[in-house]
Simulated assay, not measured.
Amino acid sequence: MCLSTAVRADNPDEILMEYVQSLSIDGDSITLVDLMGEKKVIRGNLTFADLTGAVLKIDCK
């Protein structure tokens, strides 16, 4: 199973969500869902996704 960590693009030390299993994008809203089913909606743009490294970078607005 591949789970990712979502971080801010401008500050990779700031974790937005860990154990992200899925994400959906609707305009400038990104919905992250973790392994436990908890959802978090973030306004911004997905700028980078390293699926083998399990990192998602989001440019937050």
Rank of each mutant, 00 (worst) to 15 (best):
M1Y: 13
M1S: 12
C2S: 15
C2A: 15
S4R: 05
S4I: 07
T5V: 13
T5K: 08
T5R: 09
A6S: 08
A6G: 06
A6E: 03
A6K: 01
V7W: 00
V7E: 01
R8D: 06
A9Y: 07
A9K: 12
A9C: 06
D10Y: 02
D10N: 12
N11V: 08
N11K: 10
N11C: 11
P12M: 11
D13E: 10
D13Q: 07
E14G: 03
I15R: 06
I15F: 09
L16Q: 05
M17I: 05
E18S: 13
E18C: 07
E18M: 10
V20E: 00
V20D: 00
V20C: 00
Q21G: 06
Q21F: 08
Q21Y: 08
Q21C: 03
Q21P: 04
S22D: 14
L23W: 13
L23A: 07
L23P: 03
I25Q: 09
I25V: 15
D26E: 15
D26W: 07
D26S: 15
G27L: 08
G27D: 13
G27T: 11
D28F: 10
I30W: 00
T31P: 08
T31V: 13
T31G: 05
T31K: 12
T31I: 10
L32M: 06
L32R: 03
L32V: 05
V33G: 00
V33F: 03
D34H: 09
D34Y: 09
D34A: 04
L35Y: 14
L35R: 06
M36S: 15
M36K: 09
E38L: 02
E38W: 03
E38Q: 09
E38I: 05
K39W: 01
V41M: 10
V41G: 06
V41H: 06
V41R: 12
V41I: 14
V41S: 07
I42A: 02
I42R: 01
R43P: 08
L46M: 15
L46E: 04
L46S: 03
T47L: 13
F48P: 01
A49W: 04
A49P: 00
A49C: 13
L51I: 09
L51K: 12
L51Q: 10
L51P: 01
T52V: 15
T52C: 10
G53S: 12
A54W: 10
A54M: 14
V55R: 10
V55Q: 12
V55M: 11
V55T: 08
K57E: 10
K57F: 02
K57G: 02
K57V: 07
K57C: 09
K57M: 12
I58Q: 00
I58S: 00
I58W: 00
D59G: 08
D59V: 05
D59R: 09
C60H: 01
C60L: 09
C60D: 03
K61D: 13
K61L: 14
K61F: 13
K61I: 08
